[in-house]
Amino acid sequence: MELFDVNVSIGYWPFQEFHLKDIKQLSRHLASYGISKGFVSSLESVFLSDPHNRNTILIQKLKGKRNFSPVPILNLRLKNFLEEFSFLVNCGVKAIKLVPSYHFYNILSENTFHILNACKKNQIIPIIQIRCEDERSHHPLMKVPPVNFKDIIKLSRIFHDLKILCLCPYFYEAIEICKKTENVYVDISFIERFNTIKALVEKVSAQKILFGSHTPFFYTKAAIMKIKFAEISQTDREKIMHINAMSLLKIEKC
């Protein structure tokens, strides 16, 4: 069972204690679940106004680890975000992540258009984090609204020839996003209801769905059991587990 996890983070989060303290522990942890490849972001970058240092550290720490790709977070409120993007491209990153709700900007802003144009030009996958936590469990003084999935749909129509990955949508958001766009993909970490993946695949193509565990926020096994025991065809299962992610990255073998 090969797994490509598109939703992994490392670092400190003020509202939850994680037992995975560094890349070494994280790699060992993921390997123990059969996760052979993944996208990893730095959690500190979500809160820092300028995530440059944390992104750089992440890239350095993942250097030489062929299985896990760093996904730096860009803050589009910073004037130099395009320079930072160029720096990241030069570092060889394959994807960048946007956290519009935490960095407090609208996804339909001009800066988003600039960065998506830059992604298109440099063949970088833009990843949009819809939420990090269930809104019903936020700190009462830090209620961070999710990115509006309707705005993602609008954005996808402007950038119809760019593949965009959305992390952490709920079931109904994932359905709407996948049904109303050609070029937006979703991960399974937050999607849940009875017989989750079967219900999802009955409504949208398995081609649009990627395996994401949201480790270390969630128990890693939750996403694994969701896909492992899903009542779907083996072909669809493999697409979700790793084929779709590889195809997004244009790589042939996991």
């Binding site: 849940e192 209801r193 009875f194 096994k221 996403a223 969701k226 899903a230």
Partner: peptide, 8 residues
Amino acid sequence: RDFSVQLA
């Protein structure tokens, strides 16, 4: 919810 996730 899903048995698989909640059992996990």
